[in-house]
Simulated assay, not measured.
Amino acid sequence: MIPMPDQLVEQASERLLASAARLSRDPMTEIDWEAPVDDLYGLSPEWSTLYGTAYWEELSEEQRRELSRHEAASVASTGIWFELILQQLILRDVYSTDPASSEFQWALTEVADECRHSIMFARATGKLGAPVYRPSFATRELGRLFKTLAVGEAAYAAILVAEEVLDVMQRDWMRDPRVLPLIRQVNNIHVVEESRHMMFARDETREALVGAGRTRRWTSALVIAIAACVIVKAMVNPAVYANVGLDSARAVREAAGNEHHRALMRSSCAGLMEFLGSTGLLTGPAVRIYRRVGLI
């Protein structure tokens, strides 16, 4: 007998709950928050927005490390912002779901994971000695609109975009001995736990698209691409450059044209684009948006 869709959802949720029981981490106890912050990078230097530019070559080693710490703090702050949106989307989605179901319990488990991640990112940002880097007012308001209106595949595939991009970055950073041990620990915990969150987002996206017509897929593809564009642009706040004593206008200009960084972003999104294509969410207009922001 072939399982019905609801049975498949329950089975997938049971597997995710079992994984969470085995692999969930507690950053409050597993990270040494009192350890001194060494004179190392906040992220792998190759992932800095200026790496590979003429401006990067002019920076001292100290300036490069300081820039990387502020960039890491900005990425973490953007992660907190989107995780808050994610939590609200999930809670709204399971509002009327049977509390006894594995689907409901897994959803709350993911929200609990994201709460811990947000606290972890907040504490790590404080340890980096950087100011608070919030997305712009317009971006925050777009996020408010998105969390209110997005449903189904538009919600879950947009979640997947943010998680996939961060995942590839953080896999590099957590293995890099040039990166602060604290940040490597933070990234390791996040990568381990986000792997099941990405599996969940992919399953939910596929389920939401069952029976979806061409117009709906076209519309959702456009919404997801716009969300991806907003998320990626928000990752590194332009204020980081001025805050480490750089010429902000020049830094923004060189970062925008940095082909090395764009190539890293494209490679980090290869699996994501393959998934979106397999679900009919990689339409012509969506591809143009992804190309403009450097994800294709």
Rank of each mutant, 00 (worst) to 15 (best):
V9Y: 10
A21M: 05
L23V: 08
S24T: 11
D32P: 00
P36L: 02
D39C: 02
S44R: 14
A54Q: 14
E58F: 13
E58T: 15
E61V: 07
L67F: 06
S68A: 00
V75A: 08
V75H: 04
V75D: 06
S77Y: 15
G79Q: 11
L84F: 09
L86M: 11
Q87L: 11
V94M: 01
S96Q: 13
S96A: 14
D98A: 07
S101V: 05
Q105I: 12
L108M: 14
T109M: 11
V111E: 02
R116G: 05
H117Y: 08
A122S: 12
R123Y: 06
A124D: 00
A124F: 01
E141R: 15
L145D: 14
F146A: 06
K147L: 12
L149G: 13
A150R: 00
V151A: 11
V161A: 12
V161P: 10
E163T: 01
E164Q: 12
V168P: 02
R171P: 03
P177M: 14
V179W: 09
P181G: 07
H190T: 11
E193H: 09
M199W: 13
A201R: 04
A201V: 01
R202I: 14
D203C: 09
E204H: 15
V210G: 00
R217W: 07
W218T: 08
S220M: 04
V223P: 01
A227H: 07
V230Y: 12
K233G: 01
M235T: 07
N237C: 13
V244P: 02
L246D: 03
D247G: 06
D247Y: 00
A251K: 02
R253H: 12
A256V: 15
N258R: 06
E259L: 15
H260K: 13
H261M: 15
M273T: 02
F275Y: 05
S278L: 09
T279Y: 03
L281H: 02
L282P: 03
R291T: 10
G294R: 07
L295F: 03
